[in-house]
């Protein structure tokens, strides 16, 4: 009799231990991104800046035909050009994403509490490429007099697809995991954009002059990647010393 009770006790204890472990496991998973050991530590931090360029003959932007939806067509008096490749002077490449792809180790970062906004305006996406953090709130706004559907096509996050009529309040969503997600509107097939999700704050999207700035980077050895929707990915390795400011150049070849 006593033996049986012992076994039952062992069994129940084992069950409890396992359940607790399971619970704790879930909590650890959730805790990623909520502790902020590296966030305050900006003393001695380095800065990485530079430029992204496109070498070779400069591409000619293609014109977008919005005739399929008269509501879109009416909004533009000037021709609308594709934003796939946009360049400035001296081959400066706009809308490339520069980010730390490796080297941050186990550091985790709080997502900012303020949301990022992805706007549908003039039947295009504003911005064309949006950078945001994992678990940060994403607000999708429709400023157009026509109905859009916002359809991200992630590989690593859950896919969703929501219709958004004119005048409706912004859709609030978030993405749990890091990746660069293509976004499209199936109603208006020319609408293409990207939402780049990072679990750390060290990313930048180049402006018209092709420049980028990664600030407050803790010293260390890093792999820096530059992504462009048409020209792919370039990689460089860099070592950042305390308080150092370094400059990098990324050159895509046509």
């Amino acid at each position: 009799m006593r033996t049986r009770i012992n076994y039952l006790q062992i069994g129940v204890t084992a069950a409890l231990v396992l359940l607790t472990a399971h619970g704790a496991g879930t909590r650890t998973l959730r805790a990623i991104g909520t502790s902020s050991e590296a966030r305050e530590d900006t003393s001695g931090a380095a800065t990485l800046s530079g430029i992204v360029k496109l070498e070779g003959s400069q591409p000619v932007a293609t014109r977008i035909n919005m005739a399929a939806d008269p509501a879109c067509l009416k909004m533009h008096s000037a021709p609308v050009m594709s934003e796939e490749v946009a360049t400035g002077t001296n081959g400066a490449l706009k809308d490339a994403i520069v980010y730390i792809s490796d080297g941050l180790g186990n550091r985790t970062f709080d997502p900012p509490t303020e949301p990022v906004v992805f706007e549908q305006k003039g039947c295009t996406y504003n911005p064309h490429i949006l950078g945001m953090r994992a678990r940060q709130t994403l607000k999708v706004a429709n400023s157009d007099p026509t109905t859009h559907n916002i359809h991200p096509a992630p590989q690593n996050n859950r896919e969703w697809n929501l219709s958004q009529p004119p005048g409706s309040s912004p859709i609030e969503e978030s993405f749990a995991r890091e990746e660069i997600i293509p976004v499209k509107c199936n109603v208006h097939p020319w609408m293409k954009g990207y939402i780049a999700v990072f679990k750390h704050p060290y990313f930048a999207i180049t402006s018209k002059d092709g420049t980028f700035d990664l600030r407050n980077v803790p010293p260390g050895e890093y792999t820096i990647e530059t992504w462009h929707e048409k020209y792919g990915v370039l990689t460089q390795k860099v070592t950042l010393e305390t308080n150092q400011t370094r400059t990098l150049e990324f050159v895509f070849k046509r």
């Binding site: 009799m1 033996t3 049986r4 012992n6 076994y7 039952l8 062992i10 069994g11 129940v12 084992a14 069950a15 396992l18």
Partner: peptide
């Protein structure tokens, strides 16, 4: 008793 105990362990 052995049997019951093993069952409980397995289940857990």
């Amino acid at each position: 008793a052995h049997f019951a105990g093993i069952l409980v362990l397995l289940f857990a």
